[in-house]
Design a protein around this nucleic acid. Structure first.
Length: 479
RNA sequence: GGCUCCAUCGUCUAGGGGUUAGGACACCAGAUUUUCAUUCUGGCAGCCGGGGUUCGAAUCCCCGUGGAGCUACCA
């Protein structure tokens, strides 16, 4: 069997979108699962909207998620170049168009946008579906030659086969058919000489020997156009798989008006790539054994198009957050510190390193990890460790301590003073235990005032960790 | 409007003729935790409607309905 070649073909007209990313993810997974090749092709034929800045956003997004590209721009490969603008410069699309022109399967069209708009408007008022009138087909050879010589702008259109049912088998959805009579003679080459999407797509997919075209459901209606092109060009047709849409909460195609949609935004909001990868893989696909938390390798091994669902999936940030928390809690002390560090403000970082050694910094972060859903949550939970003396005073002065509270604090202070050496978490546990015995009070009556007096906060990390990190000296001052 | 796709808890989904319709997030309750959080246990909640086919449909077929996508010299 021929080896699998899957392509991911985004256009660099915006930051890498979550929907686009999911297409990339499923394509990559499919290629990986079959030990195939994952190809990146940049579809930058829209000169107005394409920007190299966005191309980088695509590269970065893929790399961040760990979707390694085997063939693509900057990488070369047998099928280079991988940017359509570069392929156009090589005359690849022109050559294909010439071939169709010669076979009379395509033709020159000099119609202006105004003429076309008028045709369309007429069709609409008459309530019939619009297809191009084909008036350019009536032009004689001489007329065409004259217009060409005069430098009149033109496009090249494809001559759709008449009354034909075009059918293809979608790996996910089964057979899908279209009536060719309802499809207009679409443009192959635009008047600026660049290829239209459908043309470039078909030409390149065959040139690059793509075996599987995996893309969004929104491309289903483009497929018949590409099919007739494959046929006209006399090349092999790849397999198609149309993925369900990713939806916003209102069930319409996920877009900016739904909030954050670019991969960069999620990275900056403190999501881990492993979590996003895992969550996205479950949007339209499910594992055979109902597991949800899986490693990249596990997903890769389990992934098949047969288990991809047909209906659209609402992007649920709440579940993503939960999953991100799961991944955060899996990180060990050092990995957590590395992950979280870029999300701590400079000021906080400065006061942290001014007061604590690097080791203790890791302890601090680790002590609050259960509170983190996203990395950006970190700031709010570590303030207890770095509050200035003034801030602390302000907080404590607002509190009221009862007689029993004072009794507990006095005892605690006593134990601290008599403790030789530093204060370890185990020491804290022991002292707390002792006070419980000595006073006969319940846990709340003992722990609460100590937490309050020592930290100024009613809640926070576990007492042993919190107190041992704050340190004996500071606690003696505060009690 | 035309064409096309889709339809199981609020959300993501499993289940493809006989199941108490399963899991996950969220939500609610309880337990553990000095506290927030974490963790654990339990609970709430679903087959869009109508016709067929069948001894028997969530499952197969048809029709409705609803939602979505496409309808460019964008991709």
């Amino acid at each position: 069997m021929a080896s699998v070649r899957v392509r991911f073909a985004p256009s660099p007209t915006g930051n890498l979108h979550l929907g686009t990313l999911r297409t990339a993810l499923f394509s990559w997974l499919y290629a990986q699962h079959h030990q195939g090749v994952f190809v990146l092709r940049i579809e930058d034929t829209d000169l107005q909207r394409s920007e190299s800045y966005y191309e980088h956003s695509i590269f970065e997004g893929l790399a961040w998620l760990g979707l390694d590209v085997e063939e693509g721009p900057e990488l070369d490969g047998v099928y280079a170049p991988y940017r359509q603008s570069e392929r156009a410069a090589l005359g690849l699309y022109q050559a294909a168009a010439d071939q169709l022109l010669e076979k009379k399967m395509a033709y020159y069209c000099f119609c202006t946008t105004e003429e076309l708009a008028a045709e369309r408007a007429l069709a609409e008022t008459e309530g019939r579906p619009y297809v191009y009138s084909r008036k350019a087909l009536e032009l004689s050879e001489e007329e065409i030659a004259a217009k060409l010589a005069a430098g009149e702008p033109y496009v090249i259109r494809f001559k759709m086969p008449a009354n034909q049912i075009i059918t293809f088998h979608d790996v996910i959805r089964g057979d899908i058919s279209f009536d060719s009579a309802l499809i207009s003679d679409f443009v192959l080459l635009k008047s600026d000489g660049t290829p239209s999407y459908n043309f470039a797509c078909a030409v390149d997919d065959s040139a690059m020997e793509i075996t599987h075209v995996i893309r969004g459901e929104d491309h289903i209606s483009n497929t018949p156009k590409q099919l007739v092109l494959y046929d006209a060009l006399g090349v092999t047709v790849p397999a198609f798989a149309h993925l369900p849409m990713i939806l916003g909460p209102d069930k319409s195609k996920l877009s900016k008006r739904h909030g954050a949609t670019s991969v960069t935004e999620y990275r900056e909001a403190g999501y881990l790539p492993e979590a996003l990868f895992n969550y996205m893989s479950l949007l339209g696909w499910s594992s055979p054994d109902a597991r949800e938390i899986m490693t990249r390798d596990e997903i890769k091994a389990l992934f098949t198009l047969e288990r991809v669902s047909k209906s659209g999936a609402v992007f649920d940030v709440v579940k993503l957050k939960w999953m991100n928390g799961q991944y955060i809690r899996k990180l060990d002390k050092t990995a957590l510190w590395d992950a979280v560090k870029p999300f701590i403000s400079e000021g906080t970082l400065a006061s942290l390193s001014a007061r604590y050694s690097p080791d203790v910094c890791e302890d601090i972060i680790f002590s609050v990890r259960d509170n983190l859903d996203v990395l950006t949550d970190i700031e709010q939970y570590i303030s207890v460790y770095i509050d200035s003396a003034d801030t602390y005073k302000e907080k404590v002065l607002a509190l009221e301590f009862s007689e029993s509270d004072r009794q507990v604090l006095a005892l605690f202070l006593e134990h601290l003073r008599t403790l030789p050496g530093g204060l370890s978490p185990v020491d804290v546990d022991r002292i707390l235990e002792l006070i419980l015995e000595q006073t006969g009070f319940g846990k709340g009556k003992v722990f609460k005032p100590i937490r309050l007096a020592c930290s100024g906060y009613p809640s926070g990390p576990h007492l042993p960790e919190l107190l041992s990190i704050l340190g004996k000296d500071l606690l003696i001052q505060r009690c």
